[in-house]
Design a protein around this nucleic acid. Structure first.
Length: 265
DNA sequence: AAGCTTTCCTGAACGC
DNA sequence: TGCGTTCAGGAAAGCT
């Protein structure tokens, strides 16, 4: 499931590969994949590719941007041939140089949004703090969480608060910070927020350097897996890497959480 | 209004 | 063996 490091990995590769390339066709294979809020005049050029929250954003030579969200099983693969179009391909992009990029998505949760430039900020303002921004600090986090009645794990997953963290990294961050996922977020101390900030940035940075985590579906644009799954400490593990105790498995907000009762307080 | 639950979807894994 | 059930989960909508 693509979270910040996986989306960042894709954006960096795509920015290198398709910046300044011209698209002459976008084809939607499955209805409801593309949400079009602006007309496109073909061809147009992709001027850059960047990330905000878990969105892959194509900046274009025209007055719109393309926002792609992979949700859980979405993939963008480039370059491919016509025969790579498969039963899970929901849309594809054709470049004037003959190259093809496919958007595959087994579970059909992913979306492609064509949004006029003037509405992009409004669309993205729904989302919270970027973990690598100045605003991601103990003071802001304390302020956002002080009157909230929910567990720290669920706070970390809330994209309106902090962006980019999903179920894998939320568990890894709390394990590294030695904080129980069940702790009420309003009771996290300043000292602990400092650790959460540090561990969040560290784990996301490490994961980006390993090209993301491929647990099941995530693939880089060349269809290769990332490597950070080899460095996970609690996600989908049975025992604690520190004390060898059996990890607890609980459900929070419909999501599974693993943690060590002994090491995380 | 905040914080729950449900919904979308389909393949894999599980249980009888 | 095979069929039915459960699970996985990001984010938005619906509900209390």
């Amino acid at each position: 499931m693509p979270e910040l490091p996986e989306v960042e990995t894709i954006c960096r590769s795509l920015n290198k590969e398709i910046s300044n390339k011209e698209i002459y066709q976008i084809h939607e294979i499955r209805n409801h994949t593309i949400h079009k809020e602006h007309e496109i005049i073909f061809p147009f050029t992709i001027t850059s590719v960047y990330r905000r929250a878990k969105f892959i954003i194509f900046e274009t030579s025209q007055d719109f941007k393309i926002l792609i969200h992979l949700r859980m099983t979405g993939k963008l693969i480039y370059p491919v041939n016509e025969e790579d179009v498969n039963r899970y391909t929901r849309a594809y992009f054709k470049f004037t140089d003959g190259k093809l990029m496919i958007f595959d998505d087994v579970r059909c949760f992913g979306t492609i949004e064509i949004i006029p430039n003037q509405l992009v900020d409004k669309r993205l303002n729904l989302y919270g703090i970027e973990p690598f921004s100045q605003d991601f600090n103990k003071t802001q986090l304390k302020k956002l969480s002080s009157h909230k009645q929910l567990a720290i794990k669920q706070f970390l997953l809330d994209q309106k608060m902090i962006v980019g963290i999903g179920n894998i990294y939320a568990q890894e961050i709390l394990f590294r910070a030695k904080i129980s996922p069940l702790r009420s977020v309003s009771k996290i101390k300043m000292k602990e927020w400092v650790i959460i900030v540090q561990e969040t940035q560290k784990v996301l940075e490490e994961a980006i350097s390993k090209n993301g985590t491929s647990i099941s579906d995530f693939r880089r644009i060349d269809n290769k897996t990332g490597e950070f799954q080899n460095f996970l400490q609690v996600y989908s593990k049975k025992t604690c890497p520190l004390c060898q105790n059996e990890l607890m498995v609980i459900r929070q907000g419909g999501r599974s959480t693993r943690y060590c009762e002994k090491c995380q307080k």
